[in-house]
């Protein structure tokens, strides 16, 4: 009996390999890879598309923006992803990598905005923070107050040390790890502008950019900033358990947990749907999806999926993505993006 089983598995395995190869040559669903920040939105569109249309539901993988581009730029053909979610615009190095893989015609879809919030428990008072305060509280090295030209290891222990108008609570911030797109955006939108409050650092940006990034992007490692992993729900739970801590994550998690947490004011503006949409709230970033043009004629439903994505009922002001916490593009910009995407994907 055992011999037969062994023989069987030896026979079955290559047969399955064959089946796999044939399944590969005719893929009839769209595959999307990329950012975990855009994942909740693309999956919503995918589900709507699959439930109402005549095509299969697209498959959406959460691989992170960088990992997504690696897969996306791998080449043209059904074994490579059709689209990629990105929580930032494509970098030149990725455009080059794509070109090397033969992926030249890429349609960029700007889907909307996401706010990054610095939230605290509802049991504490709302903090009024400036980006400079956050930089001073979280940077590894800060300008010496006695001699601002000189950088010293971050000496600040409490918020009051940073800014006399803030409470005398210990600095304790839970945030994303370096692999996260949210961290990149936080550096770019909070740390760097905060850092540029010193004119000599601002000047450095044009002269020696790598030194500028070293000064502004280094986050302290002495325990005041805690890397809390990619799971934003975990940060919310930790804030509830520890009311003195602050957490950094995307706006959609704040919106779902308003009964437990609230967003701190940044430069005097509270993170709300309206303030992010109008651009008043300073810490927001655009989200993107990129699609391979060469795949649109090969993968059934891909063109229709892109059309669904940019449609009014999904990306529009009252579309279902807004219900999921995406901040929609202003009407004028949306019309432009839609027109550009539709004409490019013809």
């Amino acid at each position: 009996m055992m011999q037969k089983a062994v023989l069987l598995s030896v026979l079955v395995a290559p047969a399955m390999f064959g089946a796999a190869a044939s399944a590969q040559s005719a893929r009839d669903y769209v595959t999307v890879v990329g950012s975990s920040t855009v994942y909740p939105f693309t999956t919503t569109v995918a589900e709507q598309f699959g439930k109402t249309g005549r095509f299969k539901t697209p498959k959406v993988e959460s691989t992170g923006t960088g990992g997504g581009f690696k897969l996306f730029c791998g080449g043209i053909g059904v074994q490579h992803a059709d689209m990629v979610n990105a929580s930032r615009a494509i970098k030149q190095s990725e455009i080059d990598a794509c070109a090397k893989g033969g992926v030249r015609d890429v349609v960029e879809i700007k889907v909307g905005y996401d706010g990054i919030v610095v939230a605290g428990s509802n049991r504490t008072a709302t903090l009024k923070l400036a980006r400079k305060d956050l930089y001073l509280a979280l940077a590894k090295q800060v300008p010496d107050p006695a001699n601002p030209q000189n950088l010293i290891a971050n000496p600040y222990r409490t918020w009051k040390d940073v800014n006399a108008s803030l409470p005398a609570d210990r600095i304790e911030v839970l945030g994303p790890p370096p692999t996260s797109g949210t961290r990149d955006a936080f550096l770019e939108l909070v740390m760097q502008p905060g850092c540029e409050s010193w004119s000599w650092i601002k000047a450095l940006k044009d002269v020696d950019e790598s030194r500028f990034r070293r000064v502004c992007d280094a986050i302290r490692e002495d325990g005041a900033y805690v890397e809390a992993g990619e799971n934003d729900n975990l940060i919310v739970q930790k804030l509830v358990a520890n009311p003195r801590a602050l957490g950094i994550f995307g706006y959609s998690f704040l919106e779902e947990n308003l009964n437990q947490i609230h967003g701190s004011l940044i430069e005097g503006v509270a993170p709300t749907f309206d303030s992010i949409a109008s651009g008043k709230y300073p810490v927001s970033r655009p989200l993107f999806v990129y699609a391979k043009k060469a795949h649109m004629d090969v993968i059934p439903g891909m063109r229709e999926f892109v059309t669904e994505y940019v449609s009014e009922r999904s990306m529009g002001e009252e579309g279902y993505l807004a219900d999921k916490g995406l901040i929609p593009l202003p009407a004028g910009e949306l019309a432009k993006v839609r027109a550009a995407v539709l004409s490019k994907s013809k």
């Binding site: 999956t43 995918a46 959406v60 959460s62």
Partner: peptide, 17 residues
């Protein structure tokens, strides 16, 4: 290998996502 993904339709075979 890409099995951490959003997949709505239950698989009907060994090669379905």
């Amino acid at each position: 290998i890409g099995m951490v993904a959003f997949i709505v339709d239950p698989p009907r075979g060994f090669t379905d996502p």
